[in-house]
Amino acid sequence: MAKKWGEQMKGWLTKSMNLPEDVMMDLPRITMIGQLHIYIENHRGLLAFSDKEVRLLLAKGQLLIKGQAFTIKTILPEEILIEGKIEKLVYLEG
């Protein structure tokens, strides 16, 4: 109960004080450049990687990226840059 209450508090604070959500609520910030690049900040690790599919762990749930000819350009603890042809982006609720 306490956790949920805390999160509600955070949500309210962000809304009322106009703060960026990704910082306050531990959400991923995703930047895409057309279909070519996808840049995800605030992920929690790589779950699966192949040239057609990348699965990333998020703070809440998972992110599934589908496409073709994926390569990871850079991977850092909280950032990842994937190159290839991105076709789908799916949030899997955890």
Binding site: G45, L46, F49, T71, I72, T74, I75, L76
Partner: peptide, 28 residues
Amino acid sequence: AERFINRLSRSRVPVWQVSRQGEQTISF
């Protein structure tokens, strides 16, 4: 192999040009 890359990135080792070579192989 993904876990291996996770471990590396968690220990602050920059890794690039990660690509899958085959069923079970990843090169970086």
